[in-house]
Design a protein around this nucleic acid. Structure first.
Lengths: 181, 181, 181, 181
DNA sequence: TATGAATGAGCGTTCATTCAT
DNA sequence: AATGAATGAACGCTCATTCAT
């Protein structure tokens, strides 16, 4: 009957952080949105910042899981295609997380978590991409992978800002064609 | 001898907003950094938010000016090259502005200014790019321009996050090659 | 096997109140220290303040008992010696209670309990001392008893603050000599 | 026309801390008592604890000044008499400070300041008393000085708790007689 | 009797903003 | 134009207390 209140708090917090920004969201607002007393959050998280960390961690775990496909070897073209597909699908299904993440990633204070969780994933992705580009005969696979990564990143952010103009799926085809996939 | 105090305030604010974030920067800190009294800011701006708006406006004016080259007709390849060069140069010379902008752009409250100032520039750039891509014979010039725009955007953001790994200039060459320029 | 949980709560509370102060000790901390659930305290006490009252009452009962020796008549010199010995012994065996009591005794809110429990004991002691000093021929037995009482009180407090410098036993001999006992 | 608001805050805080205890006094109550906005305190003190420290420091400065008489050499009997007189006078004129101090001195958290400011004064007083008792031919001047110090201390505390019963001046004469002064 | 999740009032603190000078 | 002391609303957080189990 009673849904998990910790989850309700996290959902409410993620929604509000994404919508209004971390700094503009009060604990009171989260509690109201979650339909819960203000103090309850502190049974599950040490502080507002710890709640943010919890949300980011949970989000990155989802990313990690959606990236598990890379653990098995694939032909490079398929691997790249899968990367795009998986990324776009994860963004589509976790818009609030990605809005929050991209809104926060440039702030020094948060770079700590990001450097742990995100930087690893980023490094892994860049390496995997470089390997695949090398297999495909690209001249500068490292630069190529950075460019590719930045392109996907930029697409995601622009999609989050203005989903109608920047439809991920319509551009996906163009990318595949561009990379002869 | 005495420099314009309004400019000093704006410079201090931009520096601190970029460094610590808008929400984590107090009026007191800005006044301290600018070497003026706390109340002085309110002679020039109605509020802290108005100061932010002022900074964004000024920044976008700079962007507009650096884009004035587009007003004159150029061969499409040169136009695209110029766009990249101008963008990267503006970013290199206005890191604080771009850090602030990208840190803030996803928040609903700020989208108001952005929809006025930035969206216009964005639309203009997208149209110009599309025109040029069309001239160059690309099949889907609109999608192509969005992809290109997102790529540049993503590069800039990744550069701002980690300038050493994402050197703009080393990737610039790759882009030019990619687009046969 | 299972000790009385009420006693465990009271012991934990006394320890923590003495160590960290009443105001700095939370019910949660007491429950943790006592190894019981947070809510259990309210089965035995109406409130945190009532728990404090319970601790003070129990402490004063102990004082009362250790003073029972006075109920039997003694030669005045022996009575005074016994008072010192009993007091110092009780302090040595109940440091936490005395720390708590002396830390709290000056606050108006607590004076209520003190005026009931403690004031009676104090009055009794002062009277007994005065009687004995009178028997010993002192000119102002009332003033003399107050001075004596304050001296013992001051020694105890200074001992609690700094046991090494203010050793009760080494000063006890000096007092006995001073009063020709 | 306008009295110093920092002083008003300190006075209000000292009064309330002495009356209700440090932990039971809110910043809001201090501001109300001082007739001032809540936030103003933080223009003068970093925190509530810093305000407490400020009050204790100011109080100890007063003690130091009232002890300046000891800097000049006096015959031992006069020195002791002066100590009593100065102490009682200072207590009479600074009841709130002494109530606050004695209510707080047993708490570990505050012992830091006390060990700096107060412990020095205490050590100085104990040494001076011991010197004077030695000059007067007492057998154990160190123990004697501790006993004397504790006696005065106890008298002050009992006076603060119950000024009517423990009149300092009526007991002062008894002390002087006791020490043949 | 015992649990501990949930509550919500109240705290210390910050800070955008005002205003007398 | 310029100052900075003063304001007070709002924040993050704590914790005594309650209550369904």
């Amino acid at each position: 009957m009673k849904t998990n209140q910790k989850d309700q708090i996290m959902e409410a917090a993620l929604r509000l952080f994404a919508e209004k920004g971390y700094g503009n969201t009060s604990i009171a607002a989260i509690a109201r949105e979650a339909g819960v007393a203000q103090g309850l959050m502190y049974n599950y998280f040490d502080s507002k910042e710890d709640l943010l960390r919890g949300l980011l961690e949970k989000g990155f775990q989802g990313v990690q899981e959606s990236m598990s496909a890379y653990n098995e070897p694939h032909p490079p073209q398929k691997a790249i295609a899968m990367h795009i597909t998986a990324t776009f699908a994860h963004v589509a299904g976790n818009k609030d997380f990605w809005r929050l993440f991209h809104a926060i990633k440039l702030q020094d204070q948060v770079q700590a978590y990001i450097n742990t969780e995100y930087a690893e994933a980023k490094t892994f992705i860049l390496k995997t991409l470089a390997t695949n580009f090398k297999k495909l005969g690209y001249k500068s696979p490292n630069e190529e992978s950075k460019l590719f990564f930045a392109m996907i990143d930029g697409l995601v952010v622009n999609h989050l800002m203005d989903p109608k103009s920047f439809s991920l799926n319509s551009i996906k085809k163009l990318i595949l064609k561009k990379y002869h996939i």
